[in-house]
Simulated scan of single mutants.
Amino acid sequence: MIIKNIMSEDPVCIDKDQNVCDALRLMGKKNVSRLLVINTNSEHERELVGIVTEKDIAIKLGSSRYGNMAPSHFHVSTVMTGELITADPDMDAGNAASLMLENNIGSLPVILDGEILGIVTKSDILDICRGRAYEKYTAGDVMSTEMITVSPQERVVHARRMMIDAGIGRLLVMDGGELAGILTAKDMTRAVINFRKVVPDKHKPSRIRNLLVEDIMKQNVRTVEADTPVTDLASMMMETGYGGFPVVDGELEGIVTKTDILDLIVEIEGVF
C-alpha cells in the first residue's frame, strides 16, 4: 500500500507568525495533534517551513526559558520543528512507518515538486492492520513491558523531564502498585495554559513548579487485555484518537502504543 492512498489530503496548516494559543485553538477545533507550519509571506504559496505538535508545545511551555512567558507572546515558529522529514506520495506505507520509527516522529508531510499534497500519520498507517496478516497478533505480542511510570504526588515539571529524556508522549501513573491514571503531553499543555489564565502573574512560576501529576492526570483509564487482537487495537486507536492503552490482566502487564504496532507493521511488510 502506498501512502497517497491513506494520507490525509487536506492537512491543517498555520502561519509561522501566529501564536501558540492560536495553534492550540486550531488543534482543538480540528481535533488534530499536529499542524503543518507555513510561511504565507513567501513568494511560494503555502511554503512549508515546519511542523508543530502538542508535545512540542508542552516541552517549550514547561522550560525555564519560556515557562514564564504567556503563550500568546511567542510565535509558532518558536516551538515548531523546522528540520522536516517528508515523504513522496508513492512511498510504501511500510517504509513510511520505518522512517517514523527511525526518527521518533509521528507523521510525515507528503510533498511532490515542492507542493504540499497531504500528511500521513501513525494513525493513518494503522489502517494496514485491518489486513488478515495481522489477525493472529495480540496486545501481548506487541506491548512494551519496560514501562516508565510516575507517582500521583510527583511534580509535573519532573514528569515533563521524564517524557523528554525518554522521547515519549505519555506516562502511566502508579499509586501503591495500582494504575491510578495516565498523563500525556496534551494534558500538560492544556493544564499549563488553563492554569495561567486563573493564577496572578506574580504567583505563576512557583505555582506551576508545584503542580502535581494528580492535579492534571486522566483517571479511569481505558485499558485492554493481553489477548486483545491487534486489529481491534488499531481500530480503537483510530476511533478514539488515543495513542496507547495500558494492558491489564488483573494487574498492569505493559502498555501498547501506536509505535509498538508500527514496529509490527514494519516487520510484516518486509521494509527495504
Rank of each mutant, 00 (worst) to 15 (best):
D187G: 09
D56V: 06
L35G: 04
P229T: 08
T184I: 08
E47M: 10
I128T: 14
T145I: 07
L211R: 04
R161I: 09
P109W: 05
M188R: 08
S72C: 13
G118P: 00
E83R: 10
G106S: 11
S206H: 07
L112A: 05
S144P: 05
E154Q: 07
V150N: 00
N210L: 09
P89C: 00
G140Y: 00
S235A: 15
L108D: 01
V192E: 10
E43Q: 13
G62V: 10
V79N: 03
D227H: 10
V49M: 01
Y137M: 03
P11R: 11
L24S: 06
N210V: 05
A139F: 01
I168Y: 00
I116G: 00
R209F: 15
C21R: 13
I6S: 10
G176Y: 00
M69Y: 15
E269F: 02
I265M: 05
T231W: 04
N5H: 12
I2S: 08
N104M: 03
H73W: 06
I3S: 01
T138I: 01
R207K: 11
M238E: 14
S107Q: 07
E115F: 10
G82K: 09
T78S: 13
V256M: 04
N31Q: 15
R170V: 04
V199A: 04
L84T: 00
V213R: 02
R170D: 03
G181A: 00
E178M: 06
P109S: 04
R161H: 07
R190S: 12
L233Q: 05
V37L: 03
I51Q: 01
M27Q: 09
T149L: 04
M69K: 14
K55S: 12
S144H: 07
I193S: 08
T81C: 02
T228Q: 05
P109G: 02
L233I: 08
E239R: 12
L24E: 13
E146R: 14
R161D: 09
D15E: 03
S63H: 11
T189C: 14
G254M: 07
I148H: 03
G250A: 08
L24K: 14
G176F: 00
R65M: 14
V266G: 03
S33N: 15
N104Q: 04
P71Q: 11
N68R: 12
G167P: 03
V224I: 14
